[in-house]
């Protein structure tokens, strides 16, 4: 998305990555969110505004995601969750759903390739959601992508496809009930943590920051269980997702560490 003529200068990429590292190091001096959630909203509006095809809008959204995630992991974020596809999105036109599936297939394979994002930052890919609802070929590729990155330990990328939080919660309740039924768990031991451990995102650090783009002030069925907890910072900004720049994320991260103590105090005061 950068100006094309600047990028033709020699040493441009090196300078860019140095700048990124420099800013990331500043962030690292303070508290960094362990888990960030992204609702990548606004791809289609972006396409309409810029008079490009819908497909291109989704592509631009992917580009933006890659840049954003790079900065996240550079700053030491342990886990990021992106809302790629909602179960409700199946209601869209069949052709668009098909594009989205194609995009998911090609991009996920691209992420896990040698030398790409996952290898660079040691990211384990984690597919979150009810994948039984997807076409067979997509399922296979998702599982394959998960398998390739299995050994990576440093960070986690949760890709929600196809996901809704209510489905997730219901799934968790179901599996808890199943465990009780098979006598692996007693009813008295069920707590909120038991449910958290049975969500699709089990074993991931708790959500600390949720970012939603495109000026819609709703959660739209994304990580409701996690986001409603006290002390989670939720940022809802007006930029469309493809226009979302690492710099904006940088400002949000600064805000996060700036307000960290206040949130912690709030949490403490409340739990008294």
């Amino acid at each position: 998305m950068t100006e094309s003529w600047i990028s033709t200068f020699p040493g441009y990429t090196q300078a860019l990555s140095l700048t990124k590292k420099f800013f990331a190091n500043i962030i690292k001096t303070g508290p960094v969110p362990q888990h960030i959630g992204f609702v990548m909203d606004g791809n289609r509006r972006f396409a309409r505004r810029n008079k490009i095809e819908l497909k291109e809008g989704h592509n631009a959204g992917y580009e933006s995601m890659a840049h954003t995630l790079e900065l996240c992991y550079e700053c030491g974020v342990k886990s990021a969750t992106v809302f790629a596809f909602s179960i409700e999105n199946f209601k869209r036109s069949p052709i668009e759903v098909e594009w989205l599936m194609e995009l998911a297939k090609s991009r996920l394979l691209q992420i896990v390739e040698h030398g790409e994002l996952c290898e660079k930052y040691g990211i384990r890919l984690n597919i979150v959601g009810n994948i039984k609802l997807l076409p067979k070929d997509v399922q296979e590729i998702l599982i394959e992508a998960e398998r390739i990155t299995k050994g990576n330990k440093r960070a986690i990328l949760n890709v929600c496809i196809p996901y809704t939080s209510r489905d997730d919660m219901t799934h968790a309740i179901k599996s808890v009930v199943k465990q009780v039924k098979s006598d692996k768990l007693s009813t008295e031991d069920i707590t909120a943590d038991t449910i958290t451990e049975n969500l699709y995102t089990a074993g991931v650090p708790p959500l600390e920051l949720l970012i939603r783009t495109s000026g819609t002030h709703r959660f739209s069925d994304f990580m409701l269980w996690e986001a409603s907890d006290s002390g989670v910072m939720v940022e809802m900004i007006d930029t469309l997702w493809p226009d979302f720049t690492p710099f904006q994320l940088y400002l949000i991260l600064l805000k996060f560490s700036f307000n960290y103590d206040r949130r912690r105090l709030c949490k403490k005061k409340i739990t008294l």
């Binding site: 209510r166 739209s220 409701l224 409603s228 907890d229 989670v232 910072m233 939720v234 809802m236």
Partner: peptide
């Protein structure tokens, strides 16, 4: 925005 433990099911 800090939902302070608001019922999660009810903010879809």
């Amino acid at each position: 925005i800090d939902l302070q433990g608001y019922p999660p099911w009810h903010i879809r």
